[in-house]
């Protein structure tokens, strides 16, 4: 009989997929603006600006839902990192992904109700959700109201620095998304974790 754990309540699934849609819209429109050309436009510039702004505002609302949900439910505990022994746990997980998995070893930190993320995932998710997303939101809001930005910082345009930070963080989050999607295939079957985010049940190995 298959072992199933109800790990993803409805609000998390709704938040997760809406966040994914807004994020993909932001990446596509952002790339289209950054590499806009007079000869070829993936998305017409004004449309790209419009949808980037809309998706950005919706992502902020989604982030507020995420923070509120984490504060009010047990989901917040999954993001708490215990520093003691963290490096060793990360090393163990890294060893599993690079060598152990090919030797047929068992995952060192299997998913259960107490532990939704393995140590590597936890560090990556905390970094993405509590460092990179706030940074991309703050710089994005500043770019939405550029008159608020300091005009010059050490002789360099404040808007330019804000934009560089926004783009760099956006890029790192894009890499995070890419890796996140790949690691989602590490379920019981390649499609298991994707199904989990739809029906809420995690399938054990």
């Amino acid at each position: 009989m298959e072992e199933k754990t109800y790990l993803y309540p409805k609000w998390i699934r709704l938040w997760h997929w809406s966040n994914a849609i807004f994020f993909i819209v932001l990446i596509v429109t952002g790339l289209s603006m950054q590499y806009s050309s007079q000869d070829y436009q993936f998305i017409p510039f004004s449309q790209a600006v419009y949808w980037h702004n809309i998706a950005g505002i919706l992502l902020i609302i989604d982030y507020i839902i995420f923070l509120t949900g984490n504060a009010l439910t047990m989901n917040g505990k999954y993001y708490k990192v215990k520093r003691k022994g963290l490096i060793d746990r990360i090393k163990k997980q890294f060893y599993y992904y690079t060598i152990g998995i090919f030797k047929g070893e068992k995952a060192p930190f299997p998913v259960n109700e107490e532990r939704k993320f393995n140590p590597l995932q936890k560090v990556a998710y905390v970094g993405a959700m509590y460092v990179l997303i706030p940074l991309v939101i703050v710089t994005g809001v500043a770019l939405l109201f550029p008159e608020m930005i300091v005009h010059k910082v050490f002789g360099v345009s404040g808007t330019l620095l804000t934009s560089l930070l926004h783009i760099a963080v956006g890029f790192l989050l894009t890499l995070f998304l890419l890796i996140h999607v790949y690691f989602s295939t590490f379920g019981k079957r390649v499609s298991s974790n994707f199904k989990s985010m739809i029906n809420g049940y995690h399938e054990g190995h």
Partner: peptide, 16 residues
């Protein structure tokens, strides 16, 4: 254009 202001799509940095 760099250092002066930021123009989306025009301000590009080759290294980045």
């Amino acid at each position: 254009i760099l250092n002066e202001s930021y123009v989306i799509g025009a301000s590009r940095n080759e290294y980045l």
